[in-house]
Structures are given as structure tokens and as C-alpha cells.
Amino acid sequence: MKNKKLFIVAVLAVILLLAVESYIYFNFSKFQKSPTHISFILTGDNLDNWDSMMAGAEDAAEDENCVVDFINCPVEYGVSGEIDSLNGALADGADIILISSIDYNAIKAYVDENDLEDKVFYVKNGIFGDSKNSVMTDDYELGIEFAKYITDNVNAKRLVLVTQTEDVNTLSQVNGIMENLTGMGIEVDYRKLSKNETKLNQSMYNLGQSGLYNGYITLDLATLTAACEAKSKLNKDLSIFSISSNIEAVYYMDAGIVNGLLFKDDYSMGYLAVKKALKSDLITADGFDTKLYYILDKNMIHTEEMEKILFPFVK
């Protein structure tokens, strides 16, 4: 009788165990950790300008159990477009949002107000050190270093610092450059120029032909392009220094139009943003530059090291 009871208990226990374990086995895939979903919001009218950053993010995601999708937010939609994209991504189940905003202050205020600090990472655009969830260059320090480079590589006595936008990054760069160039005996004037292409080109031409300045310092691609065009038209010995991360800027330098270029490493920023968002271990090689930018002249472009950083592999 006792044996019979024991036998029944054993059979029931085995059946129960089999049932539980079969459930686990057949639902094995459900128990596995689903991939982290990252949405990367990139504001700009031409997504090609973000190629390097996207490549970096994709390369970083390859090592992880992670999916990255990129959302392009046109400039004309402004920060409200970014907020809509952010909310849309969250509604679609994004675990983490990476964002390169055109208006850092506004998007950060929205993020803070909605308690999204832990989910949103700021990439490239923002105030360095303002948020722990950020991957960007220290634009003020960058401005100081670029000012030193300009001082060492130009005979000009008076330069004009031009930009089309006045976001927090640009203003930090302006401050860094202005404060340090003035101290080094070079006069520098700051001008915010029109976003209208015709007006911009005309302004740049006028600044060049006025004879007031020996050169330009441009802080975005539009003003750089306008400066190069003006230099070409004026056929004057105008120095051009620029901060950019576009292949066009490299081209102008390769063509001998630009004298000095501070190139932001978008690829590394994209790569690091994903790694940081996923809290992954990062094993960097000895040569990794944590500043995330390079200051170049023409002779440096085709060196073995710089070619690999400046030129995208295959378009």
C-alpha cells in the first residue's frame, strides 16, 4: 500500500516535472533576451551627411544583441519634429533613443520634463559634460585648440568667424576660438550669416573683398562652401579655416582651398553612443583618441592613418 502511494507520487512528480520543463523547452525562445531596440534620431536635410555616424552605430550594434534604426528628421520641423520622432520611436518600442538634435536645450528640457533621462542619449550636439548620457566633443576646448592651430599656421592679422547657426555647440566653439585668438594677437570678428544661400554667398564675397579680413573661420559646411566660392571668385590670398566633419570639407582641403580643418570624428561618436547606451565593455586600441576630433592640414590628408579616418570606404 505504502509502495503504491510512493509509486503514484513518483509518477505524478515526473509528469509535473516533464510538464514544467517541456513548457520551458518549447517556449525557450521566449525566455531568451530579446534584442535591444535603439532608435537614432538624426536631424538634417541630407542623411548622407550622417553616413559616418550611422556606420559607427551599425558597427557597434553588430557586436551586441541590438537593432538600430535611423530616423531622419528634416530641419524645417525643428525640435517639435524631433519630439514627435522621439515619441513615435518610444511608442514603437524603442528601448533607447540616441539623438543629434538641432536644439539641444529644447530637447533636453522636454526629456527632463518627461522623465526620459535614462532612455535618451545625446550624440554630437549638446553641452559637453551637461548629461552623463552624452557622446560629444568638448567644443569650447576644441575651439581653444583650433585657435592655437590657426595662430601657428597663419600670417593673417584679422579674421572673420562666420556661422549660419547659433546652437550650443557652435556658440561654445565661437567662445573658445574668439577668446584665444584675441589673446594671441589676431583680431577676430564674429558674424552670424543668413541661411539663405544667395545672401550667404554674397555676404561671404563682400567680407572677402572688403579688405578688412585676411581670412575666414567657418563653423559649418554652408559657410565653408560659401567661403571657398568667394575665395575662388576673388582670387585673393584668403586663409580659410573650418570646423566640419563632411567629406566636402576634406575635398576643399585636398584641393588646397582650405588651410586648416578641424574634423569631428562622427564614426567614433556613433560607435561610442551605441556602446555607451548598451553599457558594453569597450576594448580600445592604444591609438584611440578620446577627443573625437582631428586638426589637419593638406599634407596630412593622404597619410596612411588619416585616409582611414577621413574617407568613407565605399559609397
Binding site: G56, D59, D265, Y267, Y271, A285, D289, K308, F313
Partner: peptide
């Protein structure tokens, strides 16, 4: 290398 760029920038070894 599939991570050529990351290697060149020192992000990958």
C-alpha cells in the same frame, strides 16, 4: 576587416 573603420580609429582591436 568588417570593422575596419573601428580598428583604424582605435575603437576595436
Amino acid at each position: 576587416h568588417p570593422k575596419q573603420k573601428a580598428i583604424y580609429t582605435g575603437l576595436y582591436d
